[in-house]
């Protein structure tokens, strides 16, 4: 499958989460930080491309929508009250898919999965079946940075929204950025390139990049 566009949106968080909404071309009412972060990366990847309505959409995330989840849990267990209906909705992963699909007029399959390594083989199957795939890997930080540092045991906090636009065939008038080949499962413990390095390769690299994380391996050629 061929990579026709990508974005590598990352933000280091030092004091507070940034206002992503103001950077969006199309703003969404009631969207929270996670949804806006998702849309920001997707907009940068898609730019002016018009997607086929039957395109598939995958959003992968290790931790999902943290901030809305924290708010809902606090409302229920600390404040002893019902969550606000739209906070509850934003906390359901499928809402993020809804807003991205609406944003880019996607009518096909939309799936929220647990990690990039889960999404790539499923995208490969769709691409093999002739579909265009928009695939994002999105993780946010919590507004409470101390909570984030404590739970993730990290000093540097980064939010990321990284995206790939995948097509089944090379286009006549536009060469692809790269090709993904040799998708396989490899249970050996050796880990090679990760998601961040893959996107750095797409930005700066030439030749071949070998990805190997959580048993999934594939090769990117450009």
């Amino acid at each position: 499958m061929y990579i026709y566009a990508f974005s590598n949106h990352t933000e280091e968080v030092t004091e507070t989460l940034s206002n992503k909404k103001m950077h969006l071309k199309k703003r969404v009412n009631r969207a929270d930080n996670y949804i806006n972060l998702t849309l920001l990366g997707a907009e940068k990847c898609i730019e002016d491309t018009i997607l086929a309505p039957e395109s598939s959409l995958y959003v992968a995330s290790n931790n999902g929508n943290l901030n809305s989840s924290v708010k809902i849990l606090k409302d229920i267990f600390l404040n002893k009250q019902l969550p606000m209906p739209f906070t509850f909705l934003n906390g359901v992963n499928v809402s993020t898919l809804f807003y991205v699909a609406k944003h880019f007029n996607i009518k096909g399959k939309t799936l929220f999965v647990d990690r990039f390594e889960s999404a790539i083989p499923q995208a490969f199957v769709d691409v093999k079946n002739g579909k265009t795939v928009l695939l994002g890997m999105v993780d946010e930080a919590t507004e409470d940075l101390e909570l984030y540092r404590d739970r993730f045991q990290c000093e540097t906090i980064t939010e990321s929204s990284r995206w790939l636009l995948l097509l089944p065939q090379p286009q006549e008038d536009t060469p692809p950025i790269a090709q993904i080949i040799d998708i396989a499962w490899d249970e050996s413990s050796e880990e090679r390139g990760d998601v961040a390095k893959l996107f750095t390769f797409l930005e700066e690299g030439e030749g071949v990049f070998d990805f190997k994380q959580n048993s999934l391996s594939f090769r990117v050629v450009r």
Binding site: N93, T110, L111, F112, D114, S118, A119, W185, S215, L216
Partner: peptide, 8 residues
């Protein structure tokens, strides 16, 4: 291969 799918 393994995957979680979370679509409500």
């Amino acid at each position: 291969f393994s995957s979680i799918i979370s679509t409500a």
